[in-house]
């Protein structure tokens, strides 16, 4: 169900929870699928004793991937033309993440209607973990 230009306006928002109580096992799953086996993300002994962190933490790209899921659920499959983020804070096991997208602009490029979105992912304490933007093709 792609978005329609005629049904969108600047300032519209969409929100979804993309993970509830992030598990260490999901972080391991992401390591295996992505090929990023940095022990900071899956090796409690290394993360605490060598690197000095309180525990392991999620790959930034896992947070981006979960953030992207909310966008593709909303704008439709294969509709993103741009997606970029900054990793603002670390994401830890047990975190619950909510993604919010806000319509910043509705425009056309070579006759193709597009929507520009501001994207923000926050944890259960309201702390922003991912801040970014995306552009998607929309229907007239």
């Amino acid at each position: 169900m792609p978005l329609k230009k005629s049904q969108l306006k600047v300032g519209d928002t969409h929100e979804a929870v993309v993970v509830d109580n992030l598990t260490r096992t999901q972080i391991v799953q992401y390591a295996g699928a992505s090929g990023d086996y940095n022990p900071l993300h899956s090796d409690e002994v290394f993360a605490t004793k060598v690197a000095g962190y309180p525990t392991v933490f999620a790959h930034g790209m896992l947070s981006m991937g979960m953030t992207g899921r909310m966008l593709t659920d909303w704008v439709g499959d294969g509709r993103l033309t741009k997606f970029g983020v900054r990793f603002v804070s670390q994401v830890w096991p047990g975190d619950t993440l909510t993604v919010k997208a806000t319509v910043e602009a509705i425009r056309e490029e070579n006759g193709q209607p597009l929507v520009d979105l501001a994207v923000s992912t926050v944890n259960q304490d309201g702390r922003e973990v991912v801040s970014g933007s995306a552009t998607a093709r929309i229907d007239p």
């Binding site: 022990p39 290394f46 004793k49 690197a51 930034g60 981006m64 033309t81 997606f83 970029g84 983020v85």
Partner: peptide, 30 residues
């Protein structure tokens, strides 16, 4: 460099100030 018998299999050179390499931003254009 992850743990096995010891917390890390590779001792880092330079004495280690505890710094870490992290991912700061990622942008895709499709």
């Amino acid at each position: 460099f992850g743990s096995g018998k010891e917390p890390t299999g590779v001792q880092r050179s330079g004495g280690g100030g505890g710094g870490t390499g992290l991912h700061a931003e990622q942008h895709f254009e499709y």
